[in-house]
């Protein structure tokens, strides 16, 4: 565990908390893509299948449980409790366009052809693109609330910090994982345009509005 990895985990946790608090306090999930949230729930379900078979540390297990619980709590709030506020007309991204390629790629490019390893690899590929429905929704409506922007910034920072962690681990431990690193780079690159808008607009107190 190094400071970048911890920072990444905390940024991820912060993103999840921001999203849950936003939905809970405003009693609304307007502007949030339920499709992206489904993909995140699927991602962490596939990745943490080893929760009971591979004990790493108390920290590791607790974080896994928290991420899973938060992912399903978000789905519950969006699709059950505050269903009426869900903006499904703008959330039209086709999930199969992301799930099927991620599953196909996981079957072909993996570290080992076993169920748990292919599921882990699938989760890595799926997570890389899971935010696309959300970004698509923002581009469709042309704007995002500030709180949604903060959520996206924290979520994007998480994988960016993991990349720094992987560079650090490569030099300090000689450790590297090509699958996680390449997917992590793709994931972070997808946020670049958003990062630019966030820094130039939201941090200056303006609403995130896409240029016409």
């Amino acid at each position: 565990m190094n400071i970048f990895r911890l920072g990444g985990d905390l940024a991820h946790l912060l993103a999840i908390i921001i999203l849950l608090l936003k939905i809970w306090t405003t009693r609304s999930c307007a502007g949030i893509s339920g499709k992206s949230q489904i993909l995140f729930a699927l991602t962490f379900t596939a990745r943490y299948l080893d929760l009971f078979t591979n004990f790493v540390s108390v920290y590791n297990s607790v974080m896994k449980v928290v991420y899973l619980a938060a992912a399903y709590a978000t789905l519950y709030l969006m699709y059950v409790k505050f269903k009426a506020t869900y903006d499904h007309n703008h959330d039209t991204f086709r999930l199969e366009f992301l799930i099927l390629p991620a599953a196909g790629l996981a079957l072909i490019i993996n570290h080992e052809f076993s169920i748990i390893e292919v599921m882990w690899t699938f989760s890595i590929y799926l997570e890389a693109v899971a935010i696309l429905p959300q970004l698509f929704m923002v581009s469709k409506t042309g704007e995002a609330e500030s709180i949604t922007s903060h959520y996206l910034f924290a979520l994007g920072s998480y994988r960016a910090l993991y990349i720094v962690n992987w560079v650090y681990r490569y030099y300090s431990e000689g450790f590297y994982d090509m699958i996680a690193t390449l997917a992590g780079v793709v994931q972070t690159v997808l946020y670049c345009d958003f990062f630019y808008l966030y820094i130039t607009k939201v941090l200056k107190g303006k609403k995130l509005q896409l240029p016409a």
Binding site: R5, D9, H12, D50, N54, V56, S57, N60, M63, K64, Y67, H111, E112, E117, W120, Y162, N165, F175, Y176, D177, M178, A180
Partner: peptide, 10 residues
């Protein structure tokens, strides 16, 4: 041997 070590990440 990255197969096992990477699983300590989240």
């Amino acid at each position: 041997g990255s197969l096992v070590e990477t699983k300590d990440e989240l």
